[in-house]
Amino acid sequence: MRNSRLLWFIAGALTVALAVVLNPSPERHRASIKERIAQRSQLAEILHLGDLVAFVSSYHSLGVASYTVVNDRTLSVGALGMVFVLDQGAAK
């Protein structure tokens, strides 16, 4: 019984440590934002609107996950090395 609890504790601690290590950096969020905006519109790509939006975004880390905000709207969410850029309709 005790060995089983110890194993679960170690597995949990390793999972949390891995999530902290893999938490996406501000640069990963900004790169994903730039890429997603460029994919949505050729004009936005030509005008580098993704660069502007990425520049004004605020990065917030929760340790095991992170997110960026622009004008009180969540723009991207990241965890375990992955970044997801939210659609404008979903970012309300």
Rank of each mutant, 00 (worst) to 15 (best):
M1Q: 03
M1H: 05
R2F: 08
N3V: 01
N3A: 08
S4Q: 13
S4R: 10
S4E: 14
S4C: 07
R5A: 12
R5I: 00
R5H: 01
R5F: 02
W8S: 10
F9S: 01
I10H: 00
A11G: 13
A11P: 00
G12Y: 11
T15I: 11
T15C: 15
V16L: 14
V16N: 03
L18G: 09
L18S: 12
A19H: 07
V20F: 05
V21F: 11
N23L: 07
N23Q: 14
P24Q: 12
S25Y: 01
R28H: 07
H29I: 08
R30C: 04
S32E: 15
I33N: 05
I33D: 02
I33M: 08
E35D: 08
R36V: 00
I37W: 02
A38F: 05
Q39I: 02
Q39P: 00
R40I: 01
S41W: 00
A44D: 00
A44L: 09
E45S: 12
E45N: 08
L47R: 03
L47I: 00
H48V: 02
H48I: 03
L49I: 04
G50T: 01
G50K: 06
D51N: 12
D51A: 02
D51P: 00
L52V: 06
V53A: 08
V53S: 00
F55N: 07
V56K: 02
S58W: 04
Y59A: 13
S61I: 10
L62N: 15
L62T: 08
L62F: 13
G63M: 10
G63W: 09
G63Y: 09
A65M: 13
A65C: 08
S66W: 11
Y67E: 05
Y67F: 12
T68S: 14
V69I: 13
V69S: 07
V70H: 01
V70N: 01
T74N: 06
V77I: 14
G78D: 13
G78E: 13
A79L: 14
L80Q: 08
G81W: 13
M82W: 14
M82N: 14
V83Q: 14
V83I: 12
V83K: 13
F84D: 11
V85R: 10
L86W: 08
Q88V: 05
Q88E: 07
A91P: 02
A91H: 11
A91N: 14
A91L: 10
